[in-house]
Measured scan of single mutants.
Amino acid sequence: LKLEELTVSELRQQLRLRGLPVSGTKSMLLERMRG
């Protein structure tokens, strides 16, 4: 599964599971997911 294919709400869910901030735009969330 490519990160880009996730919805913003799915990205936020994944970030929350990792204890990361869930604020910002989709591109910011993607950068955060990539670490």
Rank of each mutant, 00 (worst) to 15 (best):
S23P: 01
V8L: 12
L15T: 05
E5R: 09
L11W: 00
M33S: 07
L3R: 05
K2P: 03
L1E: 15
K2V: 14
L29D: 04
L30G: 04
L20T: 00
R32T: 14
G24A: 01
S27W: 09
L11M: 07
T25S: 14
K2E: 14
T7P: 09
R32Q: 09
L3T: 12
K26Q: 10
E4P: 06
M28R: 10
L17T: 13
E5M: 04
L20M: 14
R16W: 11
E5A: 10
L30P: 04
E31L: 04
E4I: 04
V22L: 10
E10L: 00
Q13H: 14
L29R: 02
S23E: 14
G19V: 00
L20A: 08
E31Y: 12
L15D: 02
L29P: 00
L6H: 05
E5T: 08
Q14C: 07
P21D: 12
R34Y: 07
G19R: 07
E4N: 13
G24E: 07
S27Q: 15
R32I: 04
T25G: 09
R18W: 11
V22W: 03
P21Y: 00
V8R: 07
S27P: 10
L17P: 00
E31V: 00
Q13S: 10
P21L: 02
E4F: 02
Q14D: 03
Q14I: 14
Q13N: 11
V22N: 05
P21G: 08
R32L: 04
G19I: 05
M33N: 02
L15G: 06
E4Q: 07
L20F: 07
L11D: 01
E5Y: 05
L20S: 01
R16M: 13
R12W: 09
R12A: 06
G24L: 00
L11R: 03
T25V: 05
R34L: 13
V8P: 06
S23R: 06
G24P: 01
L3V: 08
G24S: 01
R34T: 13
S9Q: 15
L15R: 01
G19P: 03
S9V: 12
P21V: 07
Q14W: 11
S27M: 02
L20Q: 03
R12H: 03
S27D: 15
V8M: 10
P21H: 01
R34I: 07
L17K: 13
L1S: 12
T25L: 03
L20V: 03
E4G: 03
Q13L: 11
V22S: 11
Q14P: 00
L3D: 12
L1F: 10
M33Q: 14
K26L: 11
G35L: 13
Q13M: 11
L30K: 09
K26C: 01
P21I: 01
V22G: 10
K26M: 01
S23Y: 12
G24M: 01
L15A: 15
M28W: 01
L29E: 10
Q14R: 11
L29N: 01
T25K: 10
E4R: 03
S27F: 00
R18Y: 09
R32N: 13
L17W: 08
S27A: 12
L20C: 11
E10C: 02
G19Q: 05
R18T: 09
E5H: 09
Q13E: 12
S23D: 15
M28I: 14
R34W: 03
L3M: 12
E31G: 08
G35S: 09
T25R: 04
V8K: 13
L29S: 03
K2N: 11
R16L: 13
E31K: 12
L11I: 10
S23V: 11
S9D: 15
L30I: 15
R12S: 08
M33F: 04
R32A: 04
S23A: 12
L1Y: 14
E10V: 05
Q14V: 10
K2L: 05
Q13A: 08
V8G: 05
E10R: 03
E31P: 00
L15K: 06
L30C: 10
L15H: 15
L15W: 00
K26S: 01
R18I: 05
T7N: 09
S9R: 12
E31C: 01
E4A: 02
T25P: 08
P21W: 01
V8Q: 02
G19C: 03
R18L: 15
T25N: 13
L11T: 05
E10D: 06
